[in-house]
Design a protein around this nucleic acid. Structure first.
Lengths: 219, 219
DNA sequence: CCTACCGATCGGTAGG
DNA sequence: CCTACCGATCGGTAGG
């Protein structure tokens, strides 16, 4: 169990203990939804303005609360940032897992890379896509323990790319070293969060096509 | 003349008027060097901690000044950020110009791309390389006019890549569309500012080799 | 450049 | 969750 899960679970336990009843009561559900609203608003504001430039008052106002109320749900502004990053990475990993499992077991390395790239662009640029950009750009504001937790999730996510890149490298479709290629490829894709505009001339499918052409000469 | 040059020039003029004598006196030189110290310290701190998380007091302390003294040289914290970005882009462009002019006029498109990539990595990761990362990540803190000024410099810098990418595309060495390829390539290279460690196992020459292999199948 | 200062804002808390 | 609040910090300035 990750440290973040531990801390999230203990926070829930603390609220349960305070009320002295099991989870999933109507009130527990309301509270959990309210908590999620705060996380989503924080993700959006952290992305738009940056962590340091976003006040907890901004976040409170975005969900119609008073200035001190977010601290009923999160013990600090940094804990809220950590939750945004942790939840974002968990969802991204789950999405990547589903995408890979939907492929047949004899899928080519090119097909695998296409699925990984397409899913990553979805996670990065699709609907509700504030979490990963925050994760990418706000590392420095995490404590050492929070940093280690998010890094572990990120490593697990990126590790799924390595066998695919290694196969492409052996087949000479990918000429660079797989480890450096991974860093460059993530850089290229992640940067699109800075310039891509949904609804513009390029769909996510077309963007994935272009990435495949650039990295693996794919057609 | 760019807006930033205008404002920098008028700031200098204001200081001259205050003293009522021409530039380049010993005192003017000292003042200009002191100003440069502030800019370099600000670049380093803005890169390490982010603009919003760096106080003007931090910057003052880094150059041994009292808390209010940076405002003798810069009218606001944002003006200092703008100077960091503007000066960084001017130097990067000058460096790129020199690198291109050192090539013979019949250089191949592969050679041109190699020089552009190698120079960009130098600007990004070499000594005194805090300016461009700040430029890349702190756009949102600029005013509209400052933003337009830096964008113009950045456009001029990136424009020099386009004919090279177009030639490679025509030769089928670059399969993606040149415009999208440019965005992906800059993303891949710029991201290295987040993970590259000088003195590690990879030199800048080797990093450039890997980038060329990845994007243009170069050897 | 320094001294001394101001008004605004911020993260966070006690008590209900 | 809200009310009311605190101590710390911040960008910036007047006056020398």
């Amino acid at each position: 169990m990750s440290e973040a899960k531990v801390s999230a679970a203990s926070a829930t336990a603390a609220r349960q203990a305070r009320r002295g009843r099991p989870p999933k009561s109507a009130q527990e559900r309301d509270e959990s939804e309210r908590r999620q609203e705060i996380v989503r608003a924080a993700a959006r504001l952290f992305r738009e303005r940056g962590f340091a430039a976003t006040s907890t008052r901004d976040i409170a106002a975005a969900v119609g609360m008073q200035s001190g109320s977010p601290f009923y749900y999160f013990k600090s502004k940094t804990a809220l940032l950590h939750t945004v990053m942790h939840d974002g990475m968990e969802q991204a990993f789950a999405s990547q897992q589903r995408a890979l499992q939907a492929l047949s077991s004899d899928a080519s390395a090119h097909q695998l890379l296409r699925v990984l790239v397409r899913n990553h662009l979805e996670v990065l640029l699709g609907p509700d896509s504030d979490f990963i950009p925050v994760m990418l750009y706000e590392w420095r504001s995490l404590s050492a323990e929070q940093h280690a937790d998010v890094a572990a999730l990120k490593d697990r996510y990126e590790a799924q790319w390595m066998p695919v890149l290694a196969r492409l490298h052996e087949a000479r479709a990918l000429r660079a070293h797989p480890r450096v290629a991974r860093l460059f490829i993530f850089g290229a894709l992640n940067w699109s969060a800075k310039w891509y505009r949904p609804g513009g001339s390029l769909s996510l499918d077309e963007l994935a096509d272009q990435a495949l052409l650039l990295f693996a000469g794919d057609e």
